[in-house]
Design a binder for these strands. Structure first.
Lengths: 113, 113
DNA sequence: TTTTTATATCAAGAAAAATTGATTATAAGA
DNA sequence: TCTTATAATCAATTTTTCTTGATATAAAAA
């Protein structure tokens, strides 16, 4: 869901609605953590990773990793795919590319394939 | 200062240094607040504003406004110019455009003039 | 079917960030 | 000089977020 597709409800002097700002707040909050940026970096690099892969690259215990992945997932910056016992995470290209500059390409975002 | 100019210190397997991620954490944290996004939106719209202007557009008491402006300033997303008793704030175009997508133009970022 | 592996979730405590009202500093005006 | 206006900062409190270890769930393997 494209965050910019949220209608700019004309309240006072055409200012966007509180919901408009809240949507972005949620997404930037998800990005606003060193550890989550590192996770995003790894997903950008590796393409599709499971929690077990990540816990090898990133020094972090499993429950913590799951906690941070959930925040990225809830902000719709990444997506999840379950295969048996494994959960694979990948970038949500559309969302990240709507949000982030092309200059951040290949660090925290990538072009869709 | 361009955040991407921070050297990607090759630690383990060329992964960027903790400092690299921390810089972005700080900038995204500054963006990760509904009220600060509203402030940024107003500065984007109005170009250069003083605290007194903002407290008319945004319902927020003066000390709170100063607090949030300082966070945006410390993250180098905006700049400050003092003229007499007034402090005028404006966008740091370079920084915002390095960080944010062109799709966010005219909401939270703008092209330099 | 029992065990192991992968991962999510929960509850409690710790840490960080936000809010508030008061105070301070400084410049401009009377 | 005395007063007013602009805006930063401080200390105390509240709120939010993060971390941790334990537990739950569900699939795969033995």
């Amino acid at each position: 869901m494209d965050p910019l597709s949220i209608p700019l409800i004309p309240t006072d002097s055409n200012k966007p609605s509180p919901e408009f700002f809240q949507q972005f707040e949620k997404k930037f909050k998800a990005l606003a953590d060193e550890k989550r940026l590192e996770i995003l970096y790894e997903i950008t690099r590796q393409g599709s990773v499971c929690v077990c892969d990540l816990s090898e690259t990133i020094e972090m215990k499993q429950s913590k990793l799951s906690y941070h992945l959930k925040i990225l997932l809830d902000a719709e910056l990444i997506t999840k795919e379950t295969k048996g016992t494994w959960n694979y995470y990948q970038l949500n290209y559309t969302e990240l590319n709507t949000l982030l500059s092309e200059k951040l390409c290949c660090v925290f975002r990538a072009d869709d394939e």
